[in-house]
Design a protein around this nucleic acid. Structure first.
Lengths: 231, 231, 231, 231
DNA sequence: AATGAATGAGGTTTCATTCAT
DNA sequence: AATGAATGAAACCTCATTCAT
């Protein structure tokens, strides 16, 4: 039973419940989350949750829908920008991650869902995941057609970017602990703010995608064809 | 019906419990796992778990230790091989993932732990994570020193590889569902066996790392063919 | 969607509530009935029930009063008819059952009340029950005085008729299931319409009451034919 | 999940739970009964009920099975006695009611089940109900064949006896209240012990069944045939 | 008169853990 | 070592009732 948000009060109580539920589910997982805790944290009576939204499972699905809603939109918006491909690729990564970060605890939620085999993923949320991949595909295709990108396994690139960065975001605590045992320089690479790490990841992705600069080095030009065959 | 210890598997009860616990914790998470289920699946009496191992939390920690034990060893073994850097890099990725795959449900366990902020990670397991990163660092450093690799953010590379591939492994179910809505060619990229996807990821990692070939091309040309065969 | 009182059925809301409550209480019992369900089925807001009638118990008492109100009246009406005793006896049974049937779900309500020891029976409803027995007593007394009936335990007759027929009516579902396992002829006796079963019961009651014919047989022979026409 | 009674301790705890559950369900109905109350009255931990028997519904079904188990057996035993039909008929009624009375609260349980449409009746219990009717049929058939009984609607007779007497038993409280308002003689008929009322009912049933004495009145012999047709 | 929302109390069920054997 | 049984605590959910509008 989905809650009805009215234009008037923007669904004050359901909104509060949902926001709280996102955090609790992300922190504890579905099995570990307690409806009691969500109610208490949201400052509403437990029965209100059932009145407005439904049972624990319905609440969780609502949370997932809410949480994945922005990602696809962000990816779509980026595509329709008229930027050059290389910028589009960076923009894709930035916008998807920006969305993820903007929703507190998006990353752990995603990871738990993936870990559980997507048992609770509403079909809507799955479709949105697909749209993000589709957006990446369009960018890479465009780059390849323009001769700027080489062909790569799209999905490999996708999981490295999305999986990697969400790992990074969700794993903040673990990173800190692991970094504590590494030398300063290495540790500093593990403790970058998300925005900077996003740029690092984007850089690596681009390095992998871009054809070795063809224009200036007329000597290596022929060799680049060999590279293509190798990859 | 009930688990009976024979002379053959005498003393193996903890082993059976542990193996079962790995699967149940991976599938349901700590909060969602049921001691009852673990006991039933393991074919032992519930009280046996408490007798042999301890409470639910102790069991979980035992599971994490067990599961992370192999990863560091695999990474270390790879480093001490005398192979060329490029091969070492590939070997690193392959061996770490091979270990992950060899333990059924390693991936979801790791992802849940990361998602929960490593609340239950024993210090030992954290140290092993650090060793894996250290191993990657040694490889990259070697490559940079030899002029074959450019400098990249080590940790970015690490999470892209580890995060990405564990995402891929754990997300099998979700992938299938998402792939079902994509065009055939794109879908096929999302449905590769883990081993092949590992190679794709390794390839992308290498593309990002390798300096655009500076040495005379005609010499390395033959070697590149060897690479192709290997992949 | 919600129940809206129009000028036409103004003041009809309590009526709607009561009618619905009869059905729900009959189907589920007091403990099993839900105020929510009554409100929904009646098409009114739950708070309306409290506004118009009162709490659940008050509603239930109202239902009992309503439901038993007609029975006594029907029995009284039958007595003051000038018919011969034998006809009066049949008329008694017919009218009481006719009333029971006319109120959907009268039978299960009565049975649940009896089963619960009449915990909720309002004193008024109890008085009405008494009047039905009193009516039967007057008929039997008249028959005995006229030498047509033998003396029987009045109350035994009463419960056999009322208990039996309400059992029959309320037990429709069970009868169907039990009859499914009996031979065709026996089953058909268990599946008569209530009106026909009422006649069967009346016939048995009369057989038990009527004195074995003492008057010269050849005189009454014709009357027996009249009976046939009546039945 | 049915409990397993062992020969050793005769299922001490489950037995206690069941006996208590019979009383509570009979007194309050399924919806009104509280698992808490059953546990408390039985002197066991609430969770024990779930461990030994299952959830509330399973417990209720177990209760119904238990409660209906004896009735069919009693009816069957009576049939195989070599007594004359008239005695058999009385014996049938006596034995079935004796069983009903021997299980405290059988009557209200039966009535509630009938009232609810037999929603929870296990198929086994339904079969036992059928056997009771079958037993009655055999008695009546024997009487008819021997020329001692007239043909009547078997099912009508059955419900009058079973419905009536269970009404009587379950309605003890209500009877007292109603009788309080009746004249002494009538009231006394409503307050007989069950055994005596059983005899009254048996008497009425026999009056209805028995052919008007055929032997002495050789004149009416032909007319009796007419009676048969009429009834 | 009507209604959406709120809520305390209590209902059923589950679960990790312990006990007795 | 092993196990059936027991159990307190708490989890999820429901419901009759009331409140504010």
């Amino acid at each position: 039973m989905a809650y009805k948000s009215t234009t008037k009060d923007a669904g004050k109580v359901p909104e509060k419940i949902l926001q709280t539920a996102i955090n609790v589910f992300a922190a504890k997982g579905f099995g570990g989350a307690r409806v009691d805790e969500i109610a208490k944290d949201a400052g509403v009576n437990k029965a209100s949750i059932y009145y407005h939204i439904g049972d624990k499972e319905a609440l969780y699905k609502e949370v997932l829908n809410r949480v994945f809603a922005g990602a696809a939109q962000a990816a779509d918006d980026n595509i329709s920008s008229g930027k050059p491909v290389e910028e589009k690729l960076k923009g894709h990564i930035r916008s998807v991650i920006k969305n993820a970060v903007s929703i507190e605890n998006f990353a752990p939620l995603l990871m738990r869902e993936v870990a559980s085999g997507g048992e609770n993923m509403p079909r809507e949320a799955l479709a949105q995941m697909g749209r993000v991949i589709q957006a990446l595909k369009e960018i890479v295709d465009e780059g390849v057609k323009k001769g700027e990108f080489r062909e790569v396994n799209l999905f490999a690139l996708h999981i490295m970017v999305i999986g990697g960065l969400n790992f990074y975001i969700a794993g903040k605590n673990i990173r800190k602990q692991v970094a504590g045992k590494m030398d300063g320089k290495t540790a500093s690479m593990a403790l970058l703010p998300v925005e900077e790490m996003t740029e690092e990841v984007a850089k690596i992705a681009l390095s992998a995608l871009k054809k070795p600069d063809t224009t200036p080095r007329h000597i290596t030009q022929k060799n680049s064809n060999i590279d293509m065959e190798i990859d």
